[in-house]
């Protein structure tokens, strides 16, 4: 009893708070010490948990021997586990390496973040620009191709037999550039083929899914 009188809170109350996870850090240390030293506190601790378990589910209201058996077996196996030898602290000679690595890694991470942001920006600009804005320069397109690493390929003109007045080539891979107009043309074009008509040799096969994937 004397040891409990040292604590500010009545012992059972602090234990209860500990179960609920509402105890302050300093009080937690004291309560844990108490749990370690006092058998009755441990019994109380178990009782609290049992009450909580039963309230949650009948299945958890099992006889404590099962838990004790599990714990004993667990301790036994843990004792038999080989000891993992931790590497020693870095020596003086090795010390500069992590420092240098860090100084190299940070700008890279920043750069990667920048590239990601730049990519998103350009794509957003393009999708907006295609349907809404006129006169966006080809430089924007070219920049997009660089940033996106080839996902959108832009060339000054068609590869072979290019005519100077031809528009830039935008190769769409996937749905990166969304243009509602383009979708509509596609739908109108594919509809001509019908679904089982021989619009192409692959007619119904390709057209079946073509306009489906477009949106």
């Amino acid at each position: 009893m004397s040891q409990w009188s040292e604590s500010k809170l009545p012992p059972m109350e602090s234990l209860s708070s500990l179960v609920d996870g509402e105890l302050e850090a300093s009080a937690v240390a004291r309560a844990c010490g108490q749990w370690r030293d006092d058998h009755e506190t441990r019994a109380q601790w178990h009782a609290y948990h049992l009450i909580g378990d039963v309230l949650r589910s009948d299945d958890l209201a099992t006889d404590g021997e099962h838990d004790a058996g599990f714990l004993a077996a667990f301790r036994q196996r843990l004792a038999n586990e080989p000891v993992v030898l931790a590497p020693s602290a870095p020596s003086v000679r090795q010390a500069p390496i992590p420092v240098r690595r860090r100084s190299w890694a940070t700008p890279m991470a920043v750069a990667a973040g920048f590239v990601a942001v730049a990519g998103v920006l350009v794509v957003t600009q393009m999708s907006g620009g295609l349907s809404l804005r006129g006169g966006q320069s080809q430089a924007d397109l070219a920049r997009a191709s660089n940033v996106l690493g080839g996902t959108v390929v832009v060339a000054a003109g068609p590869a072979s037999g290019a005519v100077a007045s031809d528009p830039p080539v935008v190769v769409l891979n996937g749905q990166l550039i969304r243009d509602v107009r383009l979708d509509e043309y596609l739908a109108a074009h594919k509809k001509f083929g019908g679904s089982s008509a021989p619009g192409g040799p692959s007619g119904f096969l390709r057209n079946a899914a073509a306009d489906g994937s477009a949106r």
């Binding site: 809404l132 804005r133 006169g135 528009p167 769409l172 550039i177 383009l182």
Partner: peptide, 17 residues
């Protein structure tokens, strides 16, 4: 001018525009 912003050439799979 609002809808037709820029001339372009696109390829989606085999479908060219």
């Amino acid at each position: 001018a609002e809808r037709h912003s820029r001339p372009m050439y696109t390829a989606i799979g085999a479908t060219q525009t």
